[in-house]
Design a binder for these strands. Structure first.
Length: 718
RNA sequence: GCCCGGAUGGCGGAACGGUAGACGCAGCGGCCUUAAAAGCCGCAGCCCUUCACGGGCGUGCGGGUUCGAAUCCCGCUCCGGGUACCA
């Protein structure tokens, strides 16, 4: 009774073993390819949910699910190597047929590709090399100090047994206690501690002092930066705070009249840079990189902001990671024929800082598939975004118990022609799904590299201007409206609210208005059916025979067909389609009494045709009503009938209204025969009553005639 | 800060260089009715003038291009979204 068609043969639920068996299978494929790996790393931890999170699930330093501020922890976790596909994820945007530009932009920014160079600085006293990534190798001569992230692995070795050991340890600890959010505050004062060591600047042999500071992040680049205070905001702020030298190496361009203040991040001629002095910094960039490469001290390099996807979760719900740890064999994948690794029963599902699965000791303790000795299962589960990263592939072959999908089904159906969802998935689900498809394609399991050819991001339906939520008590239940006004009215209203990408605010009056419109159609259908006696399919060439009101109504019906057809082909702007049908129904009401009373049976046929047309056009939104009305009019089933086609003859009319402007202002309207000569139109235009008034005492400078549309007379005082 | 969007009546929105405000909601008036509901018909951007005809102003602000701009260009304002010590 909702008018929704669903193929229940393809039903799936990602939490069932029948489904997650294949999620685990995919994990094993990724593991085999080195695309799933386990490592110790600083990760984002939500204290409330007591689990780690992926980068994409941290929003403004807070947990995407519960809003709690996340903290950093150093843990051994499983990752998917999304960064292996960074370049391809960017390159394949061009393979997409139609994705909203802003979604592509968001992914583009998230992946964050930057070109630059990797340059190695040496610390002679500790015999260590420190590569840095920089987008500004042209400023190398301006490096006056060197900074490591507090999490940098070599930090300990650098300060051990030195005077700096104690202050550095204290600093690192204090940074570790800070929330990810407060550390990210850009305006906060720069802090750090000197290491009492120096590194050698490879371009000029200069010894520059080393620091540890929290403005350097371990998870971008190499966790170390060369600091060029004259040409970088952050380095400048640090240099000011610690009274470090600032050396300008790029002058203001000659065209700049005002002397630039430091830090200066623009382009200009090089200074204080040895043999590169005088060159434009853009040219120097290439030369310096080339020179470093020759000397073996650096090379051009590309860096991404994108991080690998942390998929371990310390939650109960999720597919268990199909791995066992054996003392003698190490990390062992569960053999595919032993899948699924089913979730064990546990009493306590609550988050507790470690996986709830650990409580199921019988399940944890297992035997190693390789040596048969004692082993322990991995107790973390996978992020549920893993499940949703491939469900569209499972839909193709949902009942398959032999494989995740058959290659045949994938080749037949993929990619998804039209994918619809909210923008909130722009860099979560949509990025993960793209990664999955690329990885699976490279392994030969599927033949497409992009999952979704066309993407449409719909807006949100709000209530009283606010996002619906149970806590606010402003939710709208479709069932309630379906019960009150019917599924037809509820659906038609949603489509009539406005462009779907923008969303809209739900109002009861709006639904009632649409209900009123549908009732009007239904009522007139009954009237026409009574008048006609029996339903009759349209016969003969109505257009050639009808005249007067009947012909006008017929013309309106064909106009509506044309308008609806064009608008449907334009995308998802259903509101204008519905508006066109409303116009047609209004015209039916305007003419119906004359046409039914006239005794002219062509008139009644035209009326019947118009009503049937309205039913056809509204069918996508109101299938039930459309079916009833259409059958009353024609005796046929609307869902078996073809989409109506507008008769081009009926889209033309004998006369057209032409707007007459004088100096661009509308002054009158004239009726002229369709296809009238330009001179004839001009003569009529000049003769129009209100135009005459405005031409008085004027001489014509120019005459613009747009056939079928308007005339513009450009005049000036004579 | 940077990158995207957006701004049109009381409201949701139409109009993708050519009649601004289609269609609908809310509003007002009329008809029908003993009455109400429902329904039907009509009015409706703002201002001036009017019996009427008419006129001026109007698509966030300021410029520009054009015979003609909500629409194209330049410069802003405000709102929404994304992202951010990313080297």
């Amino acid at each position: 009774e909702w008018g929704i068609s669903i193929d229940w043969n393809r039903e799936l639920a990602t939490h069932t073993p029948e489904y997650y068996r294949w999620t685990q299978w995919i994990f094993l494929q990724l593991f085999r390819e080195g695309l799933a790996y386990r490592t110790q790393a600083p990760v984002q931890w939500c204290p409330k949910d007591a689990t780690v999170l992926a980068n994409e699930q941290v929003v403004d330093g807070r947990c995407e699910r519960c809003g709690t501020e996340v903290v950093t922890r150093n843990l051994r976790q499983w990752f998917f190597r999304t960064t292996a596909y960074a370049e391809q994820l960017l390159a394949d945007f061009e393979k997409l047929e139609s994705w909203p530009e802003h979604v592509i932009t968001m992914q583009d920014n998230w992946i964050g590709r930057s070109e630059g160079a990797e340059v190695t600085f040496r610390c002679e006293s500790a015999d260590l090399k420190f590569p840095v990534f920089t987008t500004r190798p042209d400023t190398l001569f301006g490096a006056t100090f060197f900074v490591l992230a507090p999490e940098h692995p070599e930090l300990e070795r650098l300060v051990q047994g030195t005077d700096a050991e104690e202050p550095v340890r204290e600093y690192v600890n204090s940074v570790a206690r800070e929330s990810v959010q407060s550390r990210g505050d850009e305006g906060r004062p720069k802090t750090g501690v000197p290491l009492g060591r120096t590194v050698t600047n490879p371009v000029n042999g200069e010894e520059i002092p080393m620091f540890v500071a929290d403005y350097v992040l371990m998870d971008y680049g190499t966790g170390a930066v060369m600091a060029v205070p004259a040409h970088d905001e952050r380095d400048f702020a640090f240099a000011e705070a610690f009274d470090l030298p600032v050396r300008r190496v790029i002058d203001a361009p000659e065209t700049d009249e005002q002397p630039t203040t430091l830090p200066f991040t623009g382009d200009g001629p090089m200074v204080n840079s040895g043999r590169f002095d005088g060159l434009n910094n853009r040219d120097a960039y290439d030369q310096i990189v080339g020179w470093l490469a020759e000397e073996g001290r650096g090379d051009s390099s590309v860096n991404f902001r994108l991080r690998d996807w942390l998929v371990s979760r310390q939650r109960y719900w999720g597919a268990p990671i199909p791995i066992v740890y054996c003392d003698s064999c190490g990390t062992v994948p569960v053999p595919e024929d032993q899948l699924p690794v089913e979730l064990p029963e546990v009493e306590d599902y609550a988050p507790k800082g470690k996986s709830p699965l650990e409580a199921a000791t019988d399940w944890v303790e297992t035997t190693c598939p390789e040596c048969g000795g004692g082993a322990r299962r991995e107790t973390d589960t996978m992020d549920t975004f893993v499940d949703s990263s491939w469900y569209y592939l499972r839909y193709l072959d949902a009942g398959n118990s032999e494989a995740a999908w058959s290659r045949e089904a994938v080749d037949h159906w993929m990619p998804v022609d039209q994918y619809i969802g909210g923008v909130e998935h722009a860099i979560l689900h949509l990025l993960y799904a793209r990664f999955f498809v690329k990885a699976l394609a490279d392994m030969g399991h599927i033949g497409v590299v992009e999952p979704f050819a066309n993407l449409f991001t719909q807006g949100m339906i709000t209530r009283d201007g606010a996002k619906m939520s149970k806590s606010k008590g402003n939710t709208v239940s479709p069932a309630e409206y379906v019960a009150r006004h019917g599924a037809d009215a509820a659906r038609t209203y949603v489509c009539f609210m406005g462009p779907p990408e923008r969303g809209g605010d739900w109002t009861d009056e709006g639904v009632e208005g649409v209900h009123r419109f549908l009732s009007r159609l239904w009522r007139v259908s009954g009237e026409v059916a009574d008048a006609a006696g029996s339903p009759t399919p349209t016969a003969g060439d109505l257009g050639a025979q009808a005249s007067g009101e009947a012909r006008e109504l017929l013309a309106k019906a064909h106009w509506a067909i044309d308008k609806a057809t064009r608008d449907f082909n334009r995308g998802f702007q259903f509101n204008t389609v519905i508006a066109a049908v409303m116009e047609l129904v209004n015209e039916i009401y305007r003419t119906k009494d004359v046409l039914m009373a006239g005794g002219d049976d062509r008139g009644l046929e035209c009326l019947s045709f118009a009503v049937a047309t309205a039913a056809s056009l509204i069918q996508p939104f109101s299938p039930h009503l459309a079916a009833e009305v259409y059958e009353q009019m024609t005796g046929e089933r609307v869902w078996e009938s073809d989409w109506p086609v507008a008769d081009p003859e009926m889209l033309r009319s004998d006369t057209v209204t032409i707007v007459v402007q004088v100096n661009g202002k509308v002054r009158d309207r004239i009726e002229v025969a369709d296809g009238a000569e330009k001179q004839e139109i001009l003569d009529l235009a000049r003769a129009a009553e209100n135009v005459v008034r405005h031409l008085e005492g004027m001489e014509t400078v120019k005459e613009i005639v747009v056939p079928g549309k308007l005339v513009n007379l450009v005049v000036k005082p004579a």
